[in-house]
């Protein structure tokens, strides 16, 4: 397994000082896979991504990337191989789209030399892939949410990574931009073989765009597999505490979820209803 390209987590434990964390994560994500990480707020999705990025280090257990121990890789080597698209990016002062995308070349830059032709070309290619060429000279802070998200993606692509991590890339986007963003990510995965691991909130979009779903709950993996094996009424009820109906999408054949008739009455039958709403 260690020879298998991709990223592999073995018995990974991680605990924040507050006590939250991940416990006993065993995951193997092969090269070219397209994986969504699902789970309630606080279930450890972002933590898992940061561990895969090397920003956090496991308390115990090992993470290997392409057969190499992730913690043993140099920062530069890691940043050239693995890129992360954060939920949002706020800049303290304004930069143009091109300047932001060029920041993705940081792991390739020498302290005293400016970006070389290869860096400018990589940034250009990243902007082309994300349909940003016409916006290259515009200030980032004046862009719409959907455009900004594409700029952050382009910055990650300029790193020319082999593993792309995304933290809820469709959060705060409208329906059209959600679809555009996820289609773009899927295309990058299909046409370039880029390994994609993305945390997601929307179960139906995950079912639509990802071949493999990993469901986290309280820092543990509770389901892992194709959408059929994860998006099930019993699983969703157990993890999210919401009763849902799952049926097959009439045209696409993928599992599709909607709320059960009693889902809107989560608290009405409980005695601790007011306490749960106003803890």
């Amino acid at each position: 397994m260690a020879m298998n390209p991709g990223i592999h987590l073995q018995a990974v434990h991680f605990t924040y000082p507050s006590g939250f964390g991940l416990a006993g994560i065993d995951l193997s994500i092969g090269r070219g896979e397209r994986v969504a990480i699902l789970g309630p707020n606080g279930s450890g999705k972002t933590t898992l991504l940061k561990l895969m990025l090397g920003l956090l280090h496991p308390g115990s257990g090992t993470i290997s990337f392409e057969g190499e121990d992730l913690g043993g890789m140099s920062r530069m080597a890691r940043a050239r191989a693995i890129a992360m698209v954060p939920q949002e990016l706020l800049l303290p002062y304004s930069l143009t789209v091109r300047e932001v995308v060029l920041l993705g070349r940081t792991p390739y830059l020498h302290r005293y030399r400016g970006p070389a032709r290869v860096d400018l070309e990589a940034a250009q290619a990243a902007m082309a892939a994300t349909d940003l060429l016409s916006a290259a000279g515009r200030p980032y802070n004046e862009l719409s949410g959907g455009e900004r998200q594409r700029v952050i993606l382009a910055m990650a692509l300029a790193q020319q990574p082999r593993l792309l991590l995304l933290d809820e890339p469709t959060r705060s986007l409208d329906l059209n931009h959600q679809i555009r963003m996820l289609s773009l990510i899927r295309d990058l995965n299909v046409t370039r073989g880029l390994t994609v691991v993305s945390s997601m909130h929307d179960l139906n979009l995950s079912s639509l765009y990802f071949g493999r779903l990993i469901l986290l709950s309280s820092g543990r993996v509770v389901a892992d597999g194709p959408p059929d094996t994860v998006i099930r009424p019993d699983t969703i009820q157990e993890v999210f505490g919401v009763s849902v109906l799952v049926y097959r999408h009439p045209a696409l054949g993928i599992p599709w979820m909607t709320f059960a008739p009693d889902a809107g009455d989560l608290f009405s039958t409980r005695e601790d209803a007011s306490e749960a709403i106003n803890p």
């Binding site: 920062r75 990016l89 932001v100 940081t106």
Partner: peptide, 19 residues
């Protein structure tokens, strides 16, 4: 180079390989 990378925040800069 590091100051430019810091534009995207501390974690962002670290993700870009900045020590």
């Amino acid at each position: 180079v590091s100051l430019n990378a810091l534009t995207v925040g501390e974690e962002g800069a670290q993700a870009l390989g900045v020590d």
